[in-house]
């Protein structure tokens, strides 16, 4: 029950994040959805870490956070520069690459 409950919560958060990516068009919100998915993964890491009695899961979560921080920096920089040129943050408007 212990682990299952946390994993269920993590799953719910992950699904919310994934659906956010699919449904929302504001790229900042989409980005937040991605962050939520990472956090859901972290929650699962910690639950398993406690289950096995090892700290490796916590370390994995730590690295995920670090990488997420790096990702956010770059991602937001991209969003900002896109907004500068296109005057929009809608992901649907950023489809020039298909041409």
């Amino acid at each position: 029950m212990t682990v299952t409950a946390y994993l269920a919560l993590a799953s719910a958060l992950f699904v919310i994040g994934a659906v956010t990516v699919l449904v929302r068009r504001n790229s900042i919100i989409v980005f937040m959805g991605i962050e939520l998915m990472l956090n859901a993964a972290n929650l699962a890491f910690l639950a398993f870490s406690r289950m096995w009695g090892e700290l490796d899961g916590q370390l994995a979560a730590l690295f995920v956070m670090v990488v997420a921080a790096a990702e956010v920096v770059v991602g937001l920089a991209i969003i900002v520069s896109l907004f500068r040129t296109r005057r929009t943050v809608s992901v649907d408007d950023e489809n020039l690459m298909r041409h």
């Binding site: 212990t2 682990v3 289950m51 009695g53 700290l55």
Partner: peptide, 8 residues
Amino acid sequence: TFTQVIGV
């Protein structure tokens, strides 16, 4: 199926 929680 999960094993017993050992705790950290």
